[in-house]
């Protein structure tokens, strides 16, 4: 890391109150990530694989898709896209709340 003077340039001073804020920021981030990964797991591994047989007894209304099959080949992918945009929204809000957002004129 010798030519990258990145250590210590975390946007925080050394005093304890800003350190506590950094810890709180990280805790909130971990909570968002955890919640979103639960959804990620449930729609793909849960609905698309583990519970696919019971779900297949139901047909998506107005179509010929068995529900489990639809989650495995379509639905999970749509949810994945939505999850990333939700994370982007939550984190941009969190960055502003903790005054950690980046400058606009990069």
């Amino acid at each position: 890391m010798s030519e990258q003077p990145s250590q210590g340039s975390a946007g925080y001073g050394p005093d304890s109150s800003t350190r506590a804020r950094a810890t709180e920021y990280w805790r909130r981030n971990i909570r968002y990530v955890g919640m979103l990964l639960v959804v990620w797991f449930v729609v793909s591994y849960g609905f698309g694989i583990i519970a696919v047989e019971p779900l297949d007894t139901v047909t998506v209304p107005g179509t010929g898709f068995p529900l489990g099959f639809w989650f495995a080949q379509q639905g999970a992918i749509y949810v994945f896209v939505a999850l990333i945009f939700v994370y982007v929204f939550l984190m941009n809000r969190l960055d502003r709340e903790f005054d950690l957002q980046e400058e606009d004129d990069v």
Partner: peptide
């Protein structure tokens, strides 16, 4: 350990 703390917050990416 400081490096890890640094990468956890977004501020300052441009400067680096």
């Amino acid at each position: 350990q400081q490096l890890v703390e640094m990468i956890r917050v977004p501020k300052g990416a441009g400067a680096v």
